[in-house]
Every structure is written in structure tokens, then in C-alpha cells.
Design a binder for these strands. Structure first.
Length: 483
RNA sequence: GGCGGCGUAGCCGAGUGGCCCAGGCAGAGGUCUGCAAAACCUUUUACGACGGUUCGAUUCCGUCCGCCGCCUCCA
């Protein structure tokens, strides 16, 4: 089994990955607070960890992937009150939208997608222990975690409590003993969803759910904890403090992986400022493959500055991938349709070893998807070159096709073969008819007519190409209007 | 104020102490073609500034300039 190396936020170094249990990866990725539909930032996070997960699977690991939904919090409650519906309904609706968006993005379902509200007992138990061990205190039905009880607090984010205090925004009238203490349990206010607890009715604070669910499903010391880099402080820091204090053992998670954020035309994408693109919006204009390619072309730890021209470029590149796949299928070396929905996929590859080893080397070097993409395009060029030959070497072609397919199981950027889907069964026959007519016109050098046919077909989205091997046609994948 | 990141050819974006290369998009020329498209080939004096280390730095160190993120909810 290969040694995968990647950057561990905890050590700030690239480390060789040694799993807790030979051949297995237990990973937890912070999902979303479902008060609104996901935006591109969520999509990047999901796609990044989807590729990481699929690479581990490709490399032969047995992966357990947990990603949660935060389905109770202030914003959800606020939305519910605005709309005059129950908070649970807001959460439920957005979970459905999330799942639909992820499906369209080719993001595999987590093995477990726990909801916070379904794990209240685990959280209560954790809070109970924390109070008992005096890591937490009760004020008017709220329960707070005492940050200064943890000497190592700040290790993940490189923050020191003293330094933080300099710039801290201390709110007056706080019930907390220290501004960095954080809430484990919030006393219920009228009209809010609440659960019974030994400290009175209330609901959990944000951080406790991930500690409780992480420990519950994966156990202390699981392999990888991931999320957006904006979660490093304080969310992940707090998760660590709670879990390790409660369980009296460490570490909570052994490797921490954080993806960079998405910017929109140079500014941070954030719902609060209205500066964001929703996933639904994006997928209305663009293919999921283009979105995934866009994500894969930038290293996951760097900021990704989104713009309409970038996604348009990605769309063009995806078109190139799709054309190659179509030609391979037409050449009879059939590439299986993109397997981005599959999750179990380790197979010995013998196709184009050079590209495959470049792909592996890239992925095992801190999940360098840009290098993986380069390897993929090298294979496409190779396949296209082979296809140019009068009498293509089918064996070599099959090898290239196979390698492309293998890489794409992880990346999920090659569109499915055309012709095989959608449309009506009659279309190929009608097309043949039109092309036959056009061919006769051309034979008689009636180019006015032949061009008319081609132009009119182009208007309805069908592209006709004359090649040395004969005339072929294809449907245009997607219009790419400027955003 | 504290912590962290980034600055690479027209654009996006990898990478490396010297040797021959990322990759994508765009542009130019060519092959093919009635034309076009696709594909392939070729091509466009890249490494923010200034010092230092070194036989040699875009790559290591320092300073500076510029941009950005986190420190409050946030993927």
C-alpha cells in the first residue's frame, strides 16, 4: 500500500500517512449548517474531500467517511421564524437541496451523514462528564467550556490565549467567565426548539456535536478530520479541547486537513455579505465536470478565486475531455461512463504506467490534483494522437482509455459518452439521413446546400465535422454564455 | 495587535538549487480540409523588489513592497 503524504494542520508539516488501523481510513469532515442552500465554497470543500476519499479508495484503503449536518442553530431558527415554519422544516429542506447538489456534483454519499439533532444524548453525556471533571460550568441554564483549563488550547491554530486576548472582542454582560469560553449548551428561549437536559431545557452549542459524533462513530484517535480552513479557529480547536478533556485521552483526531476558501472576483465568498454563487445557480449554467475540474486545477490548500471566465475555460477543457471519450467509444475501445458515483474502485492498472505513476505521485504528494489533471490531459493527448492514425493501434488505445478511466474515477471530470444518453432513439437515424443528403450535395460540389445543412444543424446544437475518416456529428454539450 | 497564506509567461495554475518538460485556456504559424470544426505539430525572452548563502537561486535565508485569509457565525 502506497504511503500517502499530506499536510497536517496540527504539525504544519507534510507527513507520511500512517493509518490507525492497517489498510483503513476513518475520516470525519465538517459538513454544513443547513440554513440555506450550499454555495461554491461548500462545493469546493465537498469536491476536495470527495477526491481525497476516492484516492484513498483507489489506493486500496477501506474508507469510513463521516460528514455531518448541523441541523439546529441560530441561523436555522431565524430562518424558520422569518418563514413561519418549524426549524426542523428549514433544516430538512436544505438537507434535501444539499444532497441533490452533491449528487449532481458527483460527490459520493458519506458512509454516515449524521444530524446533530439525532445525537443529543451523546452530547448530553459528553457535557455531563465535562461538568463533572470541572472543564465546564453552568450559568443560568447555559453550560460553558472553560478554555483556560486546557493548557494546550490553541495548538491547532497556532494561537496563544494571551495573544488572542489582545484582539478579543469582549462582549459586555457576558455570562462567560472568559471571552474564549464557549457554549456547550444553550438554555432555551421561548419558541425555540429545545431538548431536556439535567441543566434545563435547551439546545447544544455548535462545537459539541462534531466532538460527540466523531467519537461516537469513529472513536478517539481517528485518522483524518477535515473541513474548510475557516473552521480551524475556533471550531476545530474547540472540538479538540472538548473531546480530549472529556475522554481524558488524545489525540481526538490524528491528522487535520483543511481546504482553502473560495473567493469571488477577489473577495471572500460569504453568504453574510451576499458575495456568493450558489451551487444550483452554477450547475444551471455549467457542467458538474467543469466545476470539479476548476476545483482540481487549484491545489486544495490555496485560495480559489472564482470568476466567470475561469469556469468558462474549465468548460472548454472539459469539452476536450468529452470529445476524447466519445472518440474512444466510437473506436470501440469503450470507456466506461464516468464512475464518479462509485466509491469502491481499487483495481490493478496496467494501461499507461507512466501517466498512472505520475497521477499517483501527484496525489500522494499532498493530494496534488493539479498534477493529476496534467497526467489526465497527457493521456488524452496520447489517445488523440493514436486516434489520428489511419489504422489505430487498438491495444494501445484501450490502454490509454483504461488509464483515463482510472484517473477519472478519482477526479470525475470526464463527461459521460454522448450519443448513449438522452435524446430520442430516432435521432441517429435522422442524422444519418441528413448527413447522407449533405454528402450527396458535397459530391456534386453544391456547397451552398451542404453548408446550409451544417449551419442549420449548428443552430439547433448539433455540430457536423468532416474528417478523413468520414463525416461525424455530435450534440453540443452545453452552451457557455457569459455569466 | 496576534496567527497564517499568496505574488510564476496574455490569463488560470503546478513545480524545481543547475540539466529537456508541468497542465489548462487564449493568441500565432503549420498539417488535414471545398470551407469550417476537431485533432496533431510548432510557437509566444515566466518566476514581485532588494540584499545574502552558494561554483550556481525562480527554488534556501533576510528585509521590503503588494494582495488575501483567520482571530465573531462561516466550507
Amino acid at each position: 500500500m502506497p504511503v500517502v503524504q499530506f499536510f497536517n494542520t496540527l504539525s504544519r508539516e507534510i507527513e507520511g500517512f500512517v493509518p490507525r488501523q492497517e489498510g483503513r481510513v476513518a475520516m470525519y469532515v465538517c459538513g454544513s449548517t443547513v440554513y440555506a442552500p450550499p454555495h461554491l465554497g461548500h462545493a469546493r470543500m465537498a469536491v476536495v474531500f470527495d477526491m481525497i476519499r476516492k484516492y484513498f479508495e483507489f489506493a486500496g484503503y477501506d474508507v469510513t467517511f463521516v460528514s455531518n449536518f448541523t441541523d439546529v442553530d441560530d441561523k436555522i431558527i431565524a430562518r424558520a421564524q422569518e418563514q413561519g415554519i418549524p426549524a426542523a422544516a428549514v433544516a430538512e429542506k436544505n438537507i434535501t437541496i444539499w444532497e441533490e447538489n452533491m449528487r449532481r456534483l458527483g460527490v459520493a454519499l458519506p458512509d454516515i451523514a449524521p444530524k446533530a439533532t439525532a445525537h443529543i444524548p451523546e452530547m448530553l453525556e459528553m457535557i455531563r462528564v465535562l461538568i463533572e471533571k470541572e472543564y465546564a460550568y453552568i450559568v443560568d441554564g447555559d453550560v460553558y467550556f472553560r478554555v483556560d483549563a486546557i493548557p494546550s488550547y490553541g495548538r491547532l491554530s497556532g494561537q496563544k490565549l494571551e495573544d488572542l486576548q489582545v484582539g478579543a472582542r469582549v462582549l459586555p454582560g457576558e455570562k462567560k467567565k472568559s471571552p474564549f469560553d464557549f457554549v456547550l449548551w444553550k438554555a432555551a428561549k421561548p419558541g425555540e426548539p429545545s431538548w431536556d437536559s439535567p441543566w434545563g431545557a435547551g439546545r447544544p452549542g455548535w462545537h459539541i456535536e462534531c466532538s460527540a459524533m466523531g467519537v461516537h462513530y469513529l472513536g478517539m484517535g481517528f485518522d483524518i478530520h477535515g473541513g474548510g480552513s475557516d473552521l480551524i479557529f475556533p471550531h476545530h480547536e474547540n472540538e479538540i479541547a472538548q473531546a480530549e478533556a472529556c475522554m481524558q485521552s488524545e489525540p481526538f483526531a490524528r491528522y487535520w486537513v483543511h481546504n482553502g476558501l473560495v473567493k469571488l472576483d477577489g473577495e471572500k465568498m460569504a453568504k453574510s455579505t451576499g458575495n456568493f454563487v450558489s451551487v444550483s445557480e452554477l450547475l444551471q449554467e455549467h457542467t458538474s465536470q467543469a466545476v470539479r475540474l476548476l476545483v482540481a486545477q487549484t491545489h486544495y490548500r490555496k485560495a480559489l478565486d472564482f470568476s466567470s471566465s475561469l469556469i468558462a475555460e474549465a468548460e472548454t477543457a472539459v469539452e476536450r475531455l468529452g470529445l476524447c471519450r466519445d472518440r474512444l467509444v466510437a473506436a470501440g475501445v469503450g470507456m466506461p461512463a464516468s464512475a464518479i458515483q462509485e466509491t469502491s474502485l481499487y483495481e490493478e492498472v496496467s494501461a499507461d504506467e507512466k501517466a498512472m505513476s505520475a497521477f499517483r505521485a501527484a496525489m500522494e504528494n499532498d493530494f496534488a490534483t493539479p498534477g493529476a489533471v496534467a497526467a489526465l490531459f497527457e493521456l488524452v493527448k496520447r489517445a488523440n494522437t493514436l486516434l489520428e492514425a489511419q489504422d489505430p493501434d487498438l491495444e494501445a488505445l484501450a490502454g490509454a482509455a483504461r488509464a483515463i478511466s482510472e484517473i477519472d474515477r478519482v477526479l470525475g471530470v470526464v463527461p459521460p459518452a454522448k450519443h448513449s444518453e438522452g435524446d430520442t432513439a430516432l435521432l441517429p437515424e435522422l442524422m444519418q439521413l441528413l448527413l447522407d443528403v449533405r454528402e450527396q450535395a458535397r459530391a456534386q460540389r453544391d456547397f451552398d446546400l451542404s453548408d446550409l445543412i451544417r449551419d442549420r444543424l449548428d443552430e439547433v446544437g448539433i455540430i457536423v465535422e468532416d474528417t478523413p475518416q468520414g463525416t461525424r456529428w455530435r450534440a453540443r454539450r452545453r452552451q457557455t454564455p457569459g455569466l
